[in-house]
């Protein structure tokens, strides 16, 4: 099965000379349809850098990032933005909702931005809100909702329009354990329905929702375990530079 996300020997170096910092060193990493992969590691291990590169929000210093068979380096800025709005969904620790828009408007925003007709966008947004169990809050504004409800909207926005790659960075944030678990359940359900998911977390309890757990330290994959596709054994090589 083709990987939805494929990082090939990706390195990311910030600065140069004496201030040079290797955030990722030749990391190869894949996520397949139906698979949720957790990335764990201490602060500064490169977890968030990996997610930023996977989502096309930053470019690798060397190596390549492929999403649904497309090398992100082959896309111009507009192409990458389009890819982000149609194929990739993000869930952040901070929900990053727009306060002046209702729940439904927040969710349909990525569709509006790629020129989807308003009525169709609204229908898809309502479908996504139903999926996360808060269709009845569609016309409320974010500040009228609890943290758990806001994160559900953020998840609905991340999955709206059948996006196939879900990237989540500490998505349970400050939510209490029970509400946080609901968030993981929703991401898990989306992966069970065929999306590929990458969950960055420093909490083992959250990583346990994944099929595969990858450990990063100092920008290198030091260990990984869990069910893996036969052709995707990860290389755990050291530095490239």
């Amino acid at each position: 099965m083709n990987a939805v996300l494929n990082l090939q020997s990706v390195s990311r170096v910030h600065g140069e000379g004496v201030t040079e910092v290797h955030a990722l060193r030749s990391v190869s990493f894949r996520a397949h349809p139906g698979e949720l992969v957790a990335v764990m590691g201490p602060s500064g291990s490169g977890k968030s850098t990996l997610l930023t590169l996977a989502g096309g929000l930053d470019e690798p210093t060397s190596g390549s990032v492929w999403v649904e068979g497309t090398d992100l380096a082959s896309l111009d800025l507009a192409g990458r933005a389009r890819m982000r709005r149609t194929s990739i969904g993000y869930v952040f620790q901070a929900y990053n909702l727009i306060p002046a828009l209702t729940a439904a408007e927040n969710v349909s925003l990525p569709l509006d931005l790629v020129g989807q007709r308003a009525r169709a966008a609204r229908a898809l947004a309502m479908h996504a809100l139903e999926e996360v169990g808060i269709a009845d809050l569609a016309d409320r504004f974010p500040d009228e909702m609890s943290g758990g409800q806001q994160q559900r909207i953020a998840i609905a926005r991340a999955v709206v329009g059948e996006r196939r790659l879900i990237l989540a960075d500490e998505p349970t944030g400050a939510l209490d354990t029970d509400t946080g678990e609901d968030v993981l359940r929703l991401i898990r359900a989306r992966c069970d329905a065929g999306a590929a998911g990458v969950l960055v977390t420093h909490e083992a309890r959250h990583a346990a929702w994944a099929d595969r757990v990858v450990f990063l330290r100092d920008g290198v994959i030091v260990d990984e375990h869990g069910a893996d596709e036969p052709d995707t054994l990860l290389e755990t090589s050291g530095s490239t530079r």
């Binding site: 083992a204 929702w209 450990f215 030091v222 869990g226």
Partner: peptide
Amino acid sequence: IQRQRSATISAMQDYTRLKR
């Protein structure tokens, strides 16, 4: 430490699978 962490998370995955 790493071997133990891996094994413990693996057990947590089993419990979580039962939970869901």
